[in-house]
Design a protein around this nucleic acid. Structure first.
Lengths: 240, 240
DNA sequence: GCAACGATTTTGGTATACCAAAATTCGACG
DNA sequence: CGTCGAATTTTGGTATACCAAAATCGTTGC
């Protein structure tokens, strides 16, 4: 059998459907229908739904069908505030704990992002953006922090993706990333804190703008393009 | 039937067993045996185990029995670092957002703690301590932050409880709590940040001491006394 | 017409049965 | 006496069946 359990595969599949907009916010996820649609039984589908609920992508209601989460702007902003604090902490810890190899990987991702910024589509561009932030978090050498941060990244995936699609902002983002890289390499905790904070502040502004243009439901239609879109990995189980 | 689902009740029960030390760190939780022992079927027990795993109290291993988590000192310290950041953020937000009523509740809890500090047993004392910190987090008016913080409180419950049992530290803890209350009331974000940080630093020291005296497994035997011990509520489902 | 009520259907929650890895046991062989 | 390996047992993963709330819809009485 496959190395992953069925429930995890289903969670991955549903997560893609939600994040790419194929499952609209507020849509019902009936256990019988969905499991039949995927050709599996209800048991692993139920488990998958709980996984997604713990990531904030699905809302559980007592004795009622789970629905695709439809967070309000306040909830998204609240999540961003928390993720901001986690990223600042991660960056500061990375200043202290990152190995030379990790700094190289971060630098390489930044340079790749610079290289493709003119030509890449939103999807490929965003993939590198995600990898950049995730690598910094990993360099903190704090597994709990990395897990929690990953969870917030997942639930903020869609708003972040939409914001990253604003091509006019790419120069600023790249400049800030460059400053963060500089701060990490020189192990300047004050600098990285300021830059991460500023980075998030712009993100909040952009997402607020987008949200006010498309108050509820789908800001922008289904994400098309390559199906090889990186589905965020579910939080790794920690083998203590 | 009861208002809570069976899986949640099982999770509550297992959580109490783990946190009070009735289930030793590293102990196997076999699905068949445990479910039979509780007189329920495997399905809700499985779900309960996933809940506890998401709280970090149980470790899942592929195709092997789940075991009670047995975190290393580094993992506990890592968790404390994250919780510290979350508490600082919560306290700063509470400075901005707390209502007068919430500040009153926080003050009342602090005064209750002062009143019972000489007479109370470890369990009752710790209950108030938990409530104090949880109320501050709630006053941040950021639900995600409160949930995430609650999760870290849960997984750090046992080390925190053992540290709080050190009676010699109570005067310092009470003084720091008083400073935090003052900072909140005067909405002085700098003050509360410093005090929360210092609070956590002492906690890390105490837990490190305890851990080095009892490296693995049980530092201190099963918690006895009243069975009415507050079992931490599982993270509330957020009705968006 | 319409509102209140009850039968039917739908749906999540739980129990049970089955399957396939993984662990264990025990005997054959060196 | 030790070691390797196959049969057996144990155990987590999955499918299916059953139950009880909740929602839906049709009916009835006003």
């Amino acid at each position: 059998m496959n190395d992953n359990t069925l429930a995890e595969q289903i969670a991955d599949s549903l997560r893609r459907d939600i994040l790419l907009g194929r499952l609209a916010p507020g849509a019902l996820i009936k256990e019988r229908d969905s499991s039949a649609g995927l050709g599996v039984s209800r048991t692993p589908l139920r488990e998958a739904i709980r996984i997604l609920a713990s990531e904030g992508l699905v809302t559980l209601r007592p004795s009622r069908s789970p629905i695709v989460a439809n967070p309000s702007l306040k909830e998204i902003t609240d999540d961003l505030v928390v993720m901001n604090a986690l990223e600042i902490l991660a960056a500061r810890l990375a200043c202290m704990n990152a190995t030379a190899g990790e700094l190289d990987r971060i630098t390489a991702l930044h340079e790749e992002m610079l290289a493709i910024s003119d030509t890449a589509d939103a999807v490929s561009y965003f993939e590198v953006d995600m990898a950049f932030h995730r690598t910094i978090t990993a360099a903190s050498h704090n597994l709990s922090l990395a897990d929690t941060h990953r969870s917030y990244m997942a639930r903020l995936w869609r708003p972040r993706f939409l914001a990253a699609s604003l091509r006019r902002d790419r120069p600023r983002v790249l400049r800030q990333h460059g400053d963060i890289v500089q701060g990490l390499i020189s192990r300047d905790m004050g600098l990285v804190s300021r830059e991460v904070e500023s980075h998030t502040r712009h993100l909040v502004t952009n997402i607020t703008d987008l949200y006010e243009r498309h108050p509820n439901g789908q800001p922008g239609e289904t994400v098309t393009g390559q199906a090889a879109m990186e589905p965020p990995r579910d939080p790794a189980l920690r083998p203590h």
